[in-house]
Nucleic acid binder design. Structure first.
Lengths: 145, 145
DNA sequence: CAGCATCCTAATCGATACTG
DNA sequence: CAGTATCGATTAGGATGCTG
């Protein structure tokens, strides 16, 4: 995950803005493996923290430190970076209230909401199969040495 | 995805498998966002290359270099590491044929197959919304300066 | 409160060389 | 062919200190 725009570079359009090939594949015959654009987006939303942030924002609008506390182990820096990226991608919306002390709230955009189902099923899959995986790992580790 | 960890077992060779040293069981929280175990697994399967590998193996059993060629841009090292991790997690199965030259084939396990639907919907979502995202990014970059 | 800037270490990953 | 081993470069990401 690139950190997006180091300083105020002029064009600031970081990387891979390659043209997309025409999609002449069937619904399931996706060409993601050949499309840098798709790969890069996948990489971002499948990101460790993004996944968590999006699924947290399902329930409600949340403030910065509220998210920070909810996501145990995230540093302030990474939360900032993650939120900024999600905002840039149009998945979440950032609202600043002109108050003292300042209040900033985040919520999913309609686009972000369309991702919820998939992410939830991913999280649910993991919850449901974690023991199976732990078992597989133990077995692998035991036999592979 | 950590690659090599301080090996926890004494006699163990440096298997290139992520250590599970971050696991803290002290608090049994069965919410995915607070469960390190789940988070770690999520992190692995939502990995850039894992996603690609799993979805490629949907269609058929594949050999090492076949996968390598199919996944443009992956290094031999990362393919090895990714496959090893997926195998360890019980998601894919590795079969070595005693031939010369050697042949090694990979295919999804039943557990791996249960992940397919979710991963495909993730990939499909990305494909369907990539232009929307690119547009959002351009807009963000233009205004946020 | 909600950040941004900086420094700096640890982890990731690609390139290269070598093996069964 | 299908890896392993090593090394060097890049990057992620935590810690800290400073703002409005």
């Amino acid at each position: 995950m690139a950190e997006v725009r180091t300083s105020t570079s002029p064009g600031s359009s970081e990387v891979t803005v390659d043209g997309h090939e025409g999609d002449r594949w069937d619904v399931l015959q996706w060409d993601a493996r050949e499309n840098c654009e798709v790969r890069q987006i996948l990489d971002r939303i499948a990101d460790k923290w993004s996944l968590l942030v999006i699924s947290l924002l399902e329930e409600k609008t949340m403030r910065f430190n509220e998210l920070r506390r909810a996501i145990d182990g995230i540093s302030q820096r990474m939360l900032t970076v993650t939120l900024r990226n999600l905002e840039r991608d149009g998945l979440i919306c950032r609202t600043v209230y002109a108050e003292v002390p300042p209040r900033v709230e985040y919520h999913l955009t309609p686009l972000g909401c369309t991702l919820l189902g998939t992410i939830q099923s991913l999280v649910r899959w993991t919850e449901q199969h974690q023991e199976e995986i732990v078992r597989a790992r133990a077995e692998f580790d035991a036999s592979a040495r």
